[in-house]
Computed example of a mutant assay.
Amino acid sequence: MPNNDDYNVKRIQQMLLEMARGNFFFSLEPSAKNDNVASLIVMLNMVNEEIRASFVHQGFAQSGDTPQYLVQLSLLLDADGTIEMANQKTCSLLSRLPKDLIGKPITELLSKSSRKLWAKQWRRLLKKEQSDAVVPLELTTGDGLIVRKEFNLTTFRTLQGSTKKILMDTVLFSKGEPFGKGLWKHALKVSKGTESPKVRLSQKDIRMIRDVHDMIINNLDRDLPRLRELALQMGTNEFKLKYGFKQLYGTTIFKFLTQERLRKAKTLTMHTSLSLKTIAHMTGFKSIPHFSRAFKEKYGQPPSSLRK
């Protein structure tokens, strides 16, 4: 793939256009150079990833912007790794016509770094009659952008039993149309099970919980106070804070803190040259072993494996 300044500037321009359209699916392949353009690519990837993650999280609290639709990216491969089928969303997302995909080896779509991982995983998948694996891969678009996602790889045989196939698919969030007006005219009811007392969240309560969310995001390097103390600071009670947060964001406050620390740590590991010790400190982990253990539990591999 070309890696000169003109080509990189065109990729940056295309990336900015996609972001302006509200499309945060893409990223840019890092430049081999160490100059201002390369630095801009790194920063743009980081900003895009932060916006994409924030968009998904904020959507749960700001229902008018909730991601309501899922984009399914699916490819069917034969035993040689040749693409036999691609759904319409895949063609659209990769900016390629069906004829540009069907009959082509999947390696033509993969970034350089993903080809090595693919070769390793491909041999492992073919050894089994039936298998499922989740592999982080980078697909390149016709415009030179990157779709970076974890793909499900499912190996199976056809009805005749003589031909082996692999289904390669993933799901991405897409911003849907706003919900109807007047959604917040009624308070949101939150309950834990059928026998627990119910809590009614007003618009003020929802704004308060979103403030807690933002406080966590902006202070990942610091430990949270106890929930009772945090609730008092925010002018509410512990029960309403706990269950209100879980209703809006689908998880507990401390689990959310951990997943956001790991998400930021992954971004810094992939897109900066900071040491893992510095990254661990910046994201609130007390030690490298604690950081590595939590990272591997979340992503299935230690942070050092993301360094190229």
Rank of each mutant, 00 (worst) to 15 (best):
K120V: 02
L153H: 08
F26E: 03
N45D: 06
N45P: 04
L70F: 08
K286W: 03
S131A: 07
T170I: 02
N87G: 10
L40I: 02
I146S: 05
M234S: 10
T107N: 00
Q88V: 07
V171C: 09
A61H: 10
V9S: 10
E177L: 10
I12E: 15
K112M: 09
L125W: 05
D211Y: 04
G250N: 09
H213D: 03
R210E: 14
L167T: 07
V42M: 09
R123N: 05
L110K: 03
A187F: 13
L268I: 08
V9K: 14
L268V: 07
S74K: 13
L306S: 11
R226C: 02
Q88H: 14
R148V: 00
L110T: 04
A265R: 01
K116H: 00
E238V: 02
L73I: 15
E29K: 09
K204I: 02
S54H: 02
I106Y: 03
G64R: 05
I146C: 10
H213P: 00
E50R: 11
I288T: 12
T194D: 05
K192G: 03
K198Q: 15
G161Q: 12
K246A: 12
I51M: 13
Y69K: 15
L224G: 09
I217A: 06
L201W: 13
L94N: 04
S275A: 04
A53I: 12
L44C: 04
K266V: 05
H213F: 10
S292L: 01
E29Q: 07
S273A: 06
K165G: 03
K116V: 00
N4Y: 15
E138S: 02
T283K: 05
A231H: 12
A61C: 14
N218M: 10
L220D: 01
L109V: 02
T90C: 14
S196F: 14
M85Q: 10
Y249I: 06
L76H: 04
F254V: 06
F151V: 01
L40Q: 04
S304P: 00
I209G: 01
F254D: 11
G284K: 02
M208S: 10
F179M: 06
K185W: 11
R96K: 15
E108M: 08
R148M: 03
L28K: 14
K185R: 15
T158N: 15
K89V: 02
F285Q: 13
F285E: 07
W184K: 11
